[in-house]
């Protein structure tokens, strides 16, 4: 990465690099650790191995084994230890190896971490980031392709975010670490490898902002993480058919930034929300309900959801049927336009 300082751009090397999302996260973690000596990383296989997805590769060598800590194989222990470290004034960043392994740590996250700020009545912040590689598209075994975001969005005291691009990954991980609140950081693991530009001098949008990433006029489609690339693909196909789709990247799952969403819906009159997670009691359900309340008179059609089915994530040979793709999104777009 380049090290351009503010004000030296005139003669400095280019400030943008093309990186895969996983490497952008690695660069963001490195920057956060360089900026603040209280940032420590904990997780299974993250130090010597660099994580099963190599997101923390090289950081132990650079920062030492006191700042990149291989833990015993115990998710509740990892979260509980992060809580104690936060009480000591550290800014711990935990890696949960796969989405489906978050649940052994669920009690420490929801009953302890999420509630401790309120329990301390403002006398102690809990700046803990929990990184969770989530979602499908990688052909993995059971418990390795899930989308558990809604459990955490439902829990007061937590914030949840999910980057969709390398640029956002680089900046959002740093902003999450700087936040004084506990943050669930959902990394779209199928997007770890595709490359994209990262500008090391200019953040994208604030951590909790949603953002229009393609403008259109007839239908708004909304999603986060890996779904954003599916939505852009759907918008491209629709454009060839003469349908203008606006794509919104949710970015923050809790709290949701409704400003750009409502503005878009008031323009297009139609909203399709896509997610990998099951539909029942999901983030898409919550947004659909809120948009129906706040933009009722702008809507030309009911808000539609395109989700995983309300089943366990299927065996990998069936994941392409389970996961919403551009065709499933466009099927919903067509239904919205038919009203």
């Amino acid at each position: 990465m380049t090290n351009t300082l503010p004000g030296t751009a005139e003669t400095a090397a280019p400030t943008t690099e093309t990186l895969p999302l996983g490497r952008a996260l690695n660069a963001g973690l490195r920057k956060a650790m360089s900026d603040d000596p209280r940032v420590v990383l904990l997780g299974e296989d993250i130090a010597t191995l660099g994580g099963v997805f190599r997101v923390t590769e090289g950081l132990k060598t650079e920062f030492g084994a006191k700042r990149v800590i291989d833990t015993p194989l115990a998710e509740s222990g990892i979260i509980g230890a992060c809580i104690g470290l936060a009480m000591r004034g550290f800014r711990p960043v935990a890696e949960i190896q796969f989405d489906g392994f978050i649940f052994p740590g669920f009690d420490q996250i929801t009953s302890q971490l999420a509630k401790l700020t309120a329990r301390h009545e403002g006398t102690m912040p809990f700046p803990v980031v929990i990184r969770v590689p989530y979602g499908g598209h990688i052909g993995a075994v059971e418990h390795h392709q899930e989308s558990p975001e809604a459990y955490f969005a439902h829990t007061a005291g937590l914030r949840s975010v999910s980057p969709s691009t390398p640029h956002d990954a680089y900046w959002m991980i740093q902003e999450a670490i700087q936040s004084n609140d506990p943050i669930m950081f959902f990394e779209p693991k199928s997007r770890y490898w595709p490359k994209g530009p990262v500008d090391f001098t200019a953040p994208g949008a604030p951590l909790h902002a949603s953002r229009v990433v393609r403008t259109g006029t007839e239908v708004t489609v909304l999603g986060h993480g890996a779904m954003v690339s599916v939505l852009l693909q759907a918008a491209e196909i629709a454009a060839e058919e003469g349908i203008s789709i606006e794509v919104v990247d949710l970015r923050s799952l809790s709290p949701v930034d409704y400003g750009p969403i409502l503005e878009s819906v008031r323009k297009t009159g139609r909203l399709v929300i896509a997610q990998e997670a099951p539909q029942n009691a999901s983030i898409a359900s919550e947004i659909a309900s809120t948009v129906a309340e706040k933009a009722f008179y702008s809507l030309e059609a009911p808000v539609l959801r395109v989700s995983g089915f309300d089943t366990p994530f299927p065996p990998a040979k069936l994941e392409s049927v389970y996961l919403p793709d551009a065709d499933r999104v466009l099927e919903a777009v067509d239904r919205a336009l038919a009203y």
């Binding site: 420590v40 006191k66 104690g84 936060a86 009480m87 302890q112 329990r119």
Partner: peptide, 23 residues
């Protein structure tokens, strides 16, 4: 520290705090 009502949860907080002392 504050009372913890979920049985045993505080032992991990204490251990994390003690880990911080070593760091």
């Amino acid at each position: 520290h504050l009372y913890t009502l979920v049985i045993g949860s505080q032992t991990l907080h204490a251990t994390g705090y003690a880990l911080g002392i070593t760091l």
